[in-house]
Design a protein around this nucleic acid. Structure first.
Lengths: 132, 132
DNA sequence: AACAGTGGTTGACAACTGTAGTCGATCCAG
DNA sequence: CTGGATCGACTACAGTTGTCAACCACTGTT
């Protein structure tokens, strides 16, 4: 296609994306409602953001009746990963550890998530442990 | 002064901050040099960014001779934490686990960092393990 | 004291963002 | 089919960001 360089999301766009990721698919009205509640945005504002997100390739639409059904064109996790990479790229290396620690603390993680992380960390320890 | 609401850093500003965080303190010339190498920015560009960072309260300056010595007004880790919180806030909850996993994989972590994380995760597991 | 360098301040300008209203097409109820 | 409700496209507009050049003040040198 042509999303070679996926343009980054702006703050407001993230918020709209979050709504759509949560709903998985949604029509305008639903999005306006949640966005209105959550951020006090008028429909006009959300319209613009939806449009921009379509243009940027983050949303796919299918015509239905009067309007569209919106659904994510990219998974939340993949977009988040990219954002995380940027964040890590901005981090001075000594800060990565504390940064990760902070995030782990702040996150609500399931047992499974914790297991996965635990294993990952174990593996990393073994891998690096081999140094003199 | 006026850092009630620390304005967010823009992408370019992060890059300059990173340089200053790395150097801990630096004069213009040093920053121009690294920024030039790293991002192909002209001195003019960096000047503007430095100015904006001062205005936003991210850099403190002390007059020395002709110009300033720049140094971070906020620690890298605290700024990163804030950015991380934003990121987590943008994440749909199911994604936090995978997100963290991705970041742990991608980061270069010291043994100590790994220890800290391990303990954190253990603690979390125990805390949540008591259910059923 | 005059000058060349270095560096901060300003001004510029296009692109992107945040916010939102208007308008014409479309759909549903009557 | 007619009228009201929706919805997406388009327009608007101020503020932020990315990029820089021009200008001016201060420094250190000769």
């Amino acid at each position: 296609m042509h999303d070679d360089k996926p343009k980054d999301l702006s703050a407001a766009e993230w918020k709209v994306m979050k709504i759509v990721w949560e709903l998985k698919k949604a029509v305008a009205r639903e999005i306006y409602a949640i966005a209105g509640e959550r951020h006090d945005w008028t429909a006009g504002t959300v319209k613009t953001l939806l449009k921009r997100l379509c243009d940027k390739g983050y949303l796919r639409t299918t015509k239905v009746g009067n309007g569209f059904v919106y659904r994510p064109a990219r998974s939340a996790i993949s977009v988040l990963r990219a954002a995380a990479d940027t964040l890590l790229g901005n981090a001075v290396p000594e800060a990565s550890g504390p940064l990760l620690a902070h995030m782990v603390e702040k996150s609500a993680l399931s047992e499974e998530d914790l297991d996965v992380l635990q294993k990952l960390i174990d593996a990393k320890k073994k891998a690096s442990g081999g140094k003199t």
